[in-house]
């Protein structure tokens, strides 16, 4: 459960103050698949950074599973990211010259999961992200763009996070591969009950989600429910 209350993020450049987020509030329940939409410069990236515990807001509170994470230190935020959040980035951000399996195991390295359990969990995550088993030992630069993004999804899944944050996950993919990746997200949401927040500027991509939040000039413009989401079991 995510509760954003009156979040404001102010950037200062010299004497000029600029509110990237301006008093924004919303709630996202467990098991929802939400898209955050907006044109560039609307503040959606800033919102993603705060939702992903990569940054602190200037004011307001952010409750993630009833825990206030808006005022935590860098290292405490790292713990939140490690335990509760999985990221999928636009530029795939896999480690180069490293096998698919090792890439997926990386969050477990920092989470202190060792040995056989580490491998087993990485394999499970890869299978649920829809990657074929014979790619597991391939290097991350030997697989296609769609496969890379599914590896990234598996890596986001592997820690059993409360929230998967996807930042323009189809931005670097052609529309057909993009469809497949979005299908993977929907499957994770419907079948595994994962909470997914998708940041995008494309209408068609956003419509894969059950609910769309429109952001403009750092403010929430519209909160539209497309279809009723399946509650988490």
């Amino acid at each position: 459960m995510i509760e954003i209350k009156n979040i404001t993020k102010t950037y200062k450049t010299g004497d000029v103050e600029f509110n990237a987020l301006d008093n924004i509030s919303f709630t996202i329940n467990d098991g929802e698949f939400v898209a955050i939409m907006g044109p560039s410069g609307s503040g959606k990236s800033t919102l993603m950074h705060i939702l992903g515990a990569l940054d602190n807001p200037t004011s307001g509170t952010y409750l993630l599973d009833e825990k206030d994470v808006s005022t935590l230190s860098d290292d405490a935020l790292a713990d939140i990211r490690k335990d509760k959040i999985g990221f999928v980035f636009q530029a795939f951000n896999l480690l180069p010259r490293t096998t698919v399996l090792r890439n997926v195991m990386l969050p477990l390295v920092y989470a202190g999961v060792h040995g056989a359990e580490r491998i087993a969990r990485a394999r499970t995550a890869l299978l649920s992200a829809g990657l074929d088993e014979n790619h597991f030992q391939h290097m991350s630069n030997q697989i296609s763009g769609g496969q890379i993004q599914r590896v990234a999804i598996a890596r986001a899944l592997v820690n059993n996070p409360s929230l998967i944050l996807a930042d323009e996950p189809t931005g670097n993919l052609d529309s057909k591969t993009g469809e497949i990746v979005m299908g993977t997200f929907q499957k994770l949401n419907k079948e595994l009950g994962r909470t997914i927040i998708l940041i995008t500027h494309e209408q068609e991509i956003a419509e894969h989600a059950d609910r769309i939040l429109f952001i403009k000039d750092g403010m929430l413009l519209e909160d539209r429910t497309i279809r009723k989401s399946t509650p988490r079991f």
Binding site: D74, D75, D79, F87, N93
Partner: peptide, 16 residues
């Protein structure tokens, strides 16, 4: 730099 950012995003602390 990007790899460091990724590692931090997935939970690496400063000391890691």
């Amino acid at each position: 730099t990007k790899e460091i950012g990724l590692r931090k995003a997935i939970g690496a602390k400063r000391k890691d």
